[in-house]
């Protein structure tokens, strides 16, 4: 009789595609996902427009100002990344998930692929809308930047990707820490607070702080200098190096998270 029931099981086996489909349904079926993403875009654009209106001369980096809302906006995708993982533990869903997809590193890879794709799209949308909205609302006399100017398209596009990378960093931290409040705390401390301290203490390391990478490497069209006080100014990474370093952080968090997920009880 076992043979008849065994025969019902189709050939092949589950893989990344099936796991990703599950994660996509899980992500989109929570109302909180859509609210968070909506607020991310609205906040990024709103703050950008406000900063744009206070820009009095086109001599500065207007593109950088237009993308000023990205720094607080990133926090939301980071927190959403954390919660996407930790809410599985809080609710107990992790047991159903792991029973359905027992290869846990594959499971986290699927989660990262889906969450990364969604936050990449949302990040690019936020970044480009902010850029164009600011261009349309600048004061008279301040010329709006165009995507054709040197470094502008790069700055806008690469900044959009920052949402995805900070989101994935949050997802990895969620897998490592498992408790929502603790993981959000570590994310905020690591991304925002640490940057403030380290910026004061060790300039060499400061340029590797996630938030400073976003502010000074990704969202700029020209190399950032600190005015007259050149000696106290760290050498900020180039846009591509900054993107690489942020990716590295996300990959490290996800790798450690995937490894721990496989070691620990679900």
């Amino acid at each position: 009789m076992t043979t008849t029931t065994e025969a019902r099981v189709p050939n092949g086996h589950y893989g990344l595609a099936q796991a990703a489909r599950m994660e996509w349904i899980k992500l989109r079926s929570l109302r909180s996902t859509w609210w968070t993403l909506l607020v991310t875009v609205a906040g990024t654009v709103g703050i950008g427009v406000a900063v744009g209106l206070n820009t009095r001369s086109a001599a500065g980096d207007v593109t950088n100002n237009a993308l000023a809302g990205v720094v607080p906006g990133l926090l939301l995708t980071g927190v959403l990344g954390v919660l996407t993982m930790t809410s599985e533990y809080t609710s107990g869903t992790i047991r159903a998930t792991v029973a359905a997809v027992p290869r846990r590193p594959l499971l986290l890879a699927a989660k990262a692929a889906v969450f990364g794709a969604v936050t990449l799209i949302v990040g690019e949308v936020a970044s480009f809308i902010a850029f164009f909205a600011v261009g349309a609302t600048l004061r008279d006399g301040v010329a709006a930047p165009t995507l054709g100017q040197p470094g502008v398209l790069r700055a806008v596009a690469v900044t959009g990707a920052g949402f995805c990378l900070i989101g994935l960093l949050g997802l990895g931290l969620g897998a490592i820490i498992r408790h929502s409040a603790a993981a959000v705390g570590v994310l905020v401390a690591g991304v925002y607070v640490a940057a403030q301290f380290i910026g004061f203490i060790a300039h060499g390391v400061a340029s590797y702080m996630p938030i400073l990478i976003v502010e000074n490497s990704l969202s700029t069209t020209k190399p950032v200098t600190c005015g007259t006080d050149g000696a106290a100014c760290p050498d900020f990474l180039s846009a591509w190096a900054g993107l690489g370093v942020l990716s590295l952080y996300a990959v490290i968090a996800l790798t450690v998270g995937g490894w721990l997920l496989a070691q620990r009880d679900a």
């Binding site: 589950y14 099936q18 796991a19 489909r21 599950m22 994660e23 996509w24 349904i25 899980k26 079926s29 929570l30 109302r31 909180s32 809410s87 599985e88 609710s91 107990g92 869903t93 992790i94 047991r95 159903a96 998930t97 359905a100 997809v101």
Partner: peptide, 18 residues
């Protein structure tokens, strides 16, 4: 083993997809 914010149908649909 389900999320309080998700409907029963979505919970099952996600598991079915996996």
């Amino acid at each position: 083993a389900f999320h309080p914010g998700r409907s029963a149908r979505s919970h099952l649909a996600a598991l079915a997809a996996s």
